[in-house]
Design a protein around this nucleic acid. Sequence first.
DNA 1: AGCTACTCCTGGTAGC
DNA 2: TGCTACCAGGAGTAGC
Length: 277
Amino acid sequence: MPELPEVETTVRQLRPALLGRRIRGADVRWRRTLGGQSPAELAQAVRGTRILKVWRRAKYIVLELGRRRNPAGALLCHLRMTGRLYLASSDIESAQHVRVTLSLDRGSLVFLDVRKFGRLFYCADPASYFASLGPEPLSDDFVVADLGQRLRAHHRRLKPLLLDQTFLAGLGNIYADESLHRAGLHPLAYADQLSVAAVERLYSAIRSILTEAVQREGASFDRFYRTPAGQPGSYQDQFQVYGRKNQACPSCTHPIRRVLVGQRSTHYCPQCQKARR
DNA sequence: AGCTACTCCTGGTAGC
DNA sequence: TGCTACCAGGAGTAGC
C-alpha cells in the first residue's frame, strides 16, 4: 500500500510536470473522495490557481496553489490503499475507477482509486492541518535521540506505535514490519522498555529501509501501486517478512509468523525478533 | 493514556 | 460453472 516511499516516488515524478501548471477545473465522479467538501467548493477554490510547489508530508501529496503570486492554499491527496495520481494528455480520462480529474492548462491530473478510501481535497491551511503529525523519519532534523525520547514517552506496543502517524509520519504496515525485523525487535515489545542499542537499531532500520525503498520507487506486490509513469516499484523483491508467512526467514531460515496486532496483519521472525526486554 | 472494535470500499479468491 | 463468504488495509471515531 502506498506508504512514504510510494508517495515520495509519486511526488518526485509528478513535480516537474506539475510546477507552474494552471488548474482550469475539477471533475468529481465520487463525492466522498473530497472528504466532506462539495464538488462546487473544490472547483471554486482551485479554478484559476497555479501549482507553485509539489511536496510530501507523511503520506500526503501536497500541491501548493497560488493566485497571482499570492498563496492560495493547497490540494492535498492521500492515496490510502489503492489510490493513484497520474497525468493524462487529454481532459477526458475514461479509465475505470477514476474519482477526480483536474483539468490543467496542459493535460489533466487524474486521481484513480479502486477502493475509494483515498482522498483529494482543498485545504486552505496545510500547515495547521499537518500540525499533529509526527516527525519525518528521513528528515535531517530527525536524529536517534528524537526517536529515543518519543519511544520513552509511550507505554505502547511497537507495531501499533509505528503505524501511528502522530508518533512518526510515513510508515505503514509493510515498512513497519520490515523495520522491526531489520532491528531485531518483536512487534509486541513495549516502546518505553527498549535498550539504547535497540533504539539505535530501530532508528537505522527505519531510515535505511525507507531510503532503499525510495531508491527502488516503492513496492508493488499487487496490481495496485504503480508510479505515475505506470511502472511498478521493486522494493517488494527486498521483503524479508511482509507477506512471507510460513516462508523461511532470510536471516535464520526460521518460518515467518503472521499474527494480528490491533486488526492488522503483522509479520515477524520469532527467532530473530525475540520479545526480550 | 492506550486498547479494541467498527466503518469505509472493491475485487480477487477460497471453498463448496 | 456459479455462487457466497471472506480478506486486504489507513485513518477516523466511539467506547471502555
